[in-house]
């Protein structure tokens, strides 16, 4: 009897995962992290914010007109994350845009812009939260963009263009997913198996949505970059993006 109830509950959970379209499923919610961990992730993220912000200030001092473009860039990332993507499993998911942003604007700038986007998501659509902003910013605005950028820089010219873009975007998503699972596991270690078991557990829960998302976002980013090359070569060159053929 007990087991039957559990199977029903598990079935309901799976249904929720597929049907509720967890749009920004990797955002850690307000109040979810214990205070110490929330503070810890702020402490980890703040150096990136400081360096990124200094860089932004330097860019704006040299070219004051760029600030308008930066504002639109943040808005673009936000709107991109509202795009509905067909996912491989049949449900739909939303891209994070961090891979594309890192390719277009660089990882330091993206760590500030991405955090603004995360703050907006918390304040405008109630995804994520204020006390968990440090943790979310670390996984989505720091690790994701840096992974994307390293791949983009490391592989550009050595592999086919589409493959580099795909890997940069898909691995940015995957690294975000791994880091968030790790953050949850560190805060809530498994009573039986410790942090490692908890990591596997949270990883398995989110794998259902995040792995298909990484693949579709990779494909989408390749298509966007291709379209940008044919339609917006002048704009890309104005941004001095390296590795793009004009």
């Amino acid at each position: 009897m007990k087991r039957r109830w559990l199977i029903v509950a598990l079935g309901a959970a799976v249904l929720i995962m597929f049907e509720a379209r967890p749009a920004y499923a990797m955002h850690i919610m307000e109040g979810f992290l214990p205070p110490l961990w929330a503070l810890f992730w702020f402490a980890v993220t703040i150096p990136f914010w400081v360096i990124g912000f200094r860089q932004l200030q330097r860019i704006v001092r040299d070219k004051p007109e760029v600030r308008l473009l930066l504002g639109f860039a943040a808005a673009f990332t936000f709107v991109l994350s509202a795009l509905k993507l067909p996912s491989v499993t049949g449900s739909s998911s939303h891209p994070t845009g961090t891979g594309l942003g890192a390719i277009l604007f660089g990882p330091w700038v993206m760590s500030v812009l991405g955090s603004i986007v995360l703050l907006f998501q918390a304040l405008l659509i109630a995804h994520g939260g204020l006390t968990t902003l440090g943790a979310n910013a670390f996984s989505m605005a720091v690790v994701g963009p840096f992974v994307a950028w390293l791949i983009w820089r490391g592989l550009a010219g050595r592999a086919p263009f589409w493959l580099v873009v795909f890997l940069a975007a898909a691995l940015a998503d995957l690294s975000t997913y791994v880091v968030t699972s790790l953050q949850l596991a560190l805060a809530f270690p498994d009573p039986a198996g410790g942090i490692l078991a908890a990591f596997a557990k949270f990883g398995a829960i989110f794998a259902v949505t995040q792995i298909p998302l990484a693949i579709s976002e990779g494909i989408l980013t390749v298509l966007i970059m291709n379209a940008l090359q044919t339609n917006a070569a002048a704009e890309l060159q104005a941004l001095e993006i390296k590795g793009v053929r004009a």
Binding site: L68, A73, F76, V79, L83, L220, L223, A227, N231, E235
Partner: peptide, 21 residues
């Protein structure tokens, strides 16, 4: 859907750029 999303994303980037200019 994938094709349209990609067009949407790239056109949106261009619109954002042009609007800022």
């Amino acid at each position: 859907t994938l094709r349209s999303s990609a067009l949407l994303g790239s056109r949106l980037f261009i619109v954002a750029y042009q609007r800022s200019q």
